[in-house]
Simulated scan of single mutants.
Amino acid sequence: MEFFRWIVGVPAVLLAGGAVLAFVLFIIGGVDVWLERARAWRRLTFALVMFWFNVEIWRRVILIIVNW
Rank of each mutant, 00 (worst) to 15 (best):
W58N: 12
R60D: 05
V61P: 04
R59M: 10
L25W: 07
W68P: 01
A22W: 00
G9Q: 10
G17M: 08
G30T: 04
A12D: 03
N67E: 05
E36I: 07
A19R: 11
W34Q: 06
A38E: 11
G30Y: 08
F3C: 04
I64T: 04
G29D: 07
V10F: 07
A16T: 12
I64P: 02
V31A: 13
A19D: 10
D32K: 13
V8P: 00
L44Y: 07
F51T: 15
I64A: 04
A16L: 08
N67A: 07
R59G: 09
F23M: 08
F4E: 15
V10A: 05
L35D: 10
L15I: 02
V8L: 03
T45W: 02
I62F: 13
R42F: 09
I27F: 11
E56K: 03
R42Q: 07
F46L: 06
G29K: 06
V31Q: 12
R37L: 15
W6T: 11
G30W: 07
D32A: 13
T45A: 00
I57F: 11
L25R: 09
G18M: 02
N67H: 01
R37A: 15
M1I: 14
F23R: 05
R37W: 10
I64N: 02
V49C: 04
N54T: 13
W52R: 09
R59A: 15
V61S: 06
A12G: 02
V55I: 13
F3T: 09
N54H: 10
G29E: 08
W6C: 03
G18A: 01
W52P: 01
A22Q: 06
I27L: 13
T45Q: 00
I62V: 15
I27R: 12
W6S: 08
I7M: 06
F46D: 01
A19T: 10
G30E: 09
E36P: 00
I62H: 08
G17F: 09
F46S: 02
I7T: 04
R42C: 03
V55R: 09
I64C: 00
R42I: 00
I7E: 01
V20G: 01
F23L: 07
V61T: 05
G29Q: 06
V49F: 01
G30F: 07
L15S: 00
T45Y: 00
L35N: 12
D32F: 12
G29H: 08
L35A: 14
R5W: 03
F53K: 00
G29S: 07
V61C: 05
L48A: 05
A16C: 04
V8I: 02
A22E: 07
I65N: 04
E2C: 02
A40S: 15
W34R: 06
L35G: 10
L35Y: 13
V10G: 03
D32W: 11
R60I: 08
R37Y: 11
W6K: 13
W58L: 15
E56F: 08
V61A: 09
E56G: 01
R42L: 10
I62Y: 14
L48I: 04
R59S: 14
R5G: 02
E36T: 10
L14C: 10
W41M: 15
I7F: 04
R42S: 12
L63W: 08
M1W: 11
R59P: 03
I65T: 07
R59F: 11
A16W: 02
W41K: 11
M1F: 14
L14D: 08
A47W: 11
A19W: 11
I57S: 03
G29L: 07
I7R: 05
L21Q: 05
L48V: 05
I62Q: 09
L25M: 11
V13F: 12
